[in-house]
Amino acid sequence: MIDIIHFIQTKYYYLVVILLMMLGLYTTISSRNLIKKIIGINIFQISVFLFYIAMAKVKHGTAPILWDKGVVYDNPLPHVLILTAIVVSVSTTAVALALIINIHKEYGTIEEDGILAKQKLDEEWMNLEKQKLDIDRSSVT
């Protein structure tokens, strides 16, 4: 029991990160709305950023900007990696949203069920057209 309390006390940041990650992953898998999926991916990504930044913290450390000798600084390397990752995450979001806008133009909906139903309808219509073409050909010969 004491072990569990100690575990939560010393690593609560990581546990919150895992909780946020689970929420984001669940929405990404189970939601049928494409924009909702993007929101889930975003929450997932930002929780990973928190994981890295929490790893970089050092007890009694200050921000990694030099100002005096003999001061403990936080680890600057994860900060740099996450600076890059934030910008990359925004650009992936932009591409995904552009794709969603195109899907909406083509199918008129951003729900997965609606898109699948429209695809099925289109296929059936194509088959009907093909049959009509065959009948026309047979009547010619």
Binding site: I46, F49, L83
Partner: peptide
């Protein structure tokens, strides 16, 4: 958590531009 540069970027790019794009 003393990650000031990351906080700048997150507030401007993460919170700002993502919301605008959405």
């Amino acid at each position: 958590l003393n990650a000031v540069d990351v906080a700048f970027t997150e507030a401007s790019v993460g919170a700002g531009i993502t919301s605008v794009l959405m």
